[in-house]
C-alpha cells in the first residue's frame, strides 16, 4: 500500500509546526504581548505620520502624566484579577477619596492628615469588598458593582453636589517634576514596578496565580486563601486611595463625576487589553503597562488630530476589541506549539 501525500499537507516531513521552517518572524510573533505591541506601534506610527505634535517631549510626558492615575488602578487590578478577583468599585472609590480629600483640605486640615485619612478610608472600602466577597461567596463582579454604585452616591453626598477646590494645596505633586519627570509618573512607575516584582518574585504573588488558577488546589496546598483575598482587596482599595489623591492633586478640585465609572472602565480595559485573564490565573504587569499606554496614546492622538471627543469612547471600544482578539489569536497560536 503506497503512502499518499494529501494535497493539503504542505511540506510533509518538514518537522516544525504545520510544515514551515521557524523564522525570526515566527519567534517575534510568539513573543509575549506581540499582538499588543504591534497594535501600539501601528497607532504611534500612524499618528506620527499625521501630525508633528505627537512625538515631542512635552506631549509624550503629557501622555504619561495623564495615564499615571489609570496605571495605579490598573496595577492593583492586575494583581487582583490574576487571583481570580474583580473590583469594579475602584473608580468610585477614587471619587469618594477625591471628594473627602478636597473637603478635608478646604476645611483647613493638613495634607498629612488628609493623606492618612483618605487612604485609610479607601483601604477600608477595599477590605469591606473583600469581606463580602470571601464570606458570602457572591460573585466579586456583583458585589463590587453594588459598592461602586453606592460609593458614587457617597461621593455626591460628601461634595454636596458641588465642586470643591483645594486651591494650590498639593499642586506640586500634581504638576511638579524632577528632571522633567512628573511626580505622578514616578509614583505610577513605582507602583507598577512593585506590583511586577511582587507578582514575579514573591510567594505572595505566586499565591495570586495559584488562587486564580484553581482556588481549591490553592487552599489544599496550604495557602490561606481567605487571608490572601482580604489582603488583595484591601490593597486595591489602598491603591484606589492613592490614585484618588494623585487625581485630586492634578485637577486641584473635586467635582461630581470625578473618577467613577469612566476611570474604572478605562483601567479594566487596560488590564484586559494587557492579557490578564478575567477568569484568573494569568496576568502580567508588562501587559497592563502596554494596555494603559495604548489607551493613553489613542486618546492623545484623537485630541491632536482634532477628532470630536464623541469619537473617544468609540475608539477606546474599538481598541479594546482589536487587542482582545489579537490576544486570543496569540494565545491559541502558542497553545498549539
Amino acid at each position: 500500500m503506497s503512502v499518499t501525500t494529501l494535497p493539503d499537507a504542505p511540506g510533509t516531513g518538514t518537522p516544525p509546526g504545520r510544515g514551515r521552517r521557524p523564522s525570526r518572524l515566527d519567534a517575534l510573533r510568539r513573543a509575549p504581548h506581540a499582538g499588543l505591541t504591534a497594535v501600539l506601534v501601528v497607532v504611534v506610527v500612524a499618528t506620527m505620520l499625521r501630525t508633528d505634535a505627537f512625538a515631542t517631549d512635552t506631549n509624550l510626558i503629557n501622555i504619561l502624566r495623564q495615564v499615571s492615575v489609570t496605571a495605579v488602578i490598573a496595577a492593583g487590578l492586575t494583581l487582583l484579577m490574576t487571583a481570580g478577583g474583580m473590583d469594579f468599585s475602584m473608580g468610585s472609590n477614587v471619587s469618594v477619596t477625591t471628594a473627602l480629600g478636597a473637603q478635608l483640605l478646604s476645611h483647613g486640615h493638613s495634607t498629612v492628615v488628609t493623606v492618612v485619612v483618605t487612604i485609610a478610608l479607601a483601604t477600608m472600602i477595599g477590605l469591606v469588598n473583600g469581606l463580602v466577597v470571601t464570606f458570602t461567596h457572591v460573585a466579586p463582579f456583583v458585589v463590587t458593582l453594588a459598592t461602586a454604585t453606592l460609593l458614587d452616591g457617597v461621593a455626591l453626598l460628601v461634595l454636596d453636589s458641588v465642586s470643591v477646590s483645594i486651591g494650590t494645596r498639593m499642586f506640586p505633586l500634581g504638576n511638579g517634576d524632577v528632571l522633567g519627570v512628573p511626580y505622578l509618573l514616578i509614583l505610577a512607575v513605582l507602583v507598577l514596578a512593585a506590583t511586577a516584582l511582587v507578582m514575579r518574585f514573591t510567594v505572595f504573588g505566586r499565591d495570586a496565580y495559584a488562587i486564580g488558577g484553581n482556588e481549591h488546589v490553592a487552599r489544599l496546598s496550604g495557602i490561606d486563601v481567605t487571608a490572601r483575598k482580604l489582603t488583595l482587596y484591601a490593597l486595591t482599595g489602598a491603591l484606589s486611595g492613592l490614585a484618588g489623591l494623585m487625581l485630586l492633586s492634578r485637577l486641584g478640585s473635586s467635582s461630581p463625576g470625578t473618577g467613577g465609572l469612566t476611570l474604572q472602565l478605562t483601567a479594566v480595559a487596560a488590564v484586559v487589553i494587557g492579557g490578564t485573564s478575567l477568569a484568573g490565573g494569568h496576568g502580567t504587569v508588562t501587559g497592563t503597562v502596554l494596555g494603559v499606554v495604548l489607551l493613553g496614546v489613542v486618546a492623545n492622538a484623537l485630541n491632536l488630530l482634532q477628532v470630536s471627543s464623541n469619537y473617544q469612547p468609540v475608539s477606546v471600544g474599538g481598541v479594546l476589541l482589536v487587542a482582545a482578539i489579537a490576544n486570543e489569536f496569540h494565545k491559541s497560536r502558542s497553545a498549539r506549539n
Partner: peptide, 8 residues
Amino acid sequence: ALGLVPGM
C-alpha cells in the same frame, strides 16, 4: 479539580 493548577 483538586490536585494541580493547570496554567502553572
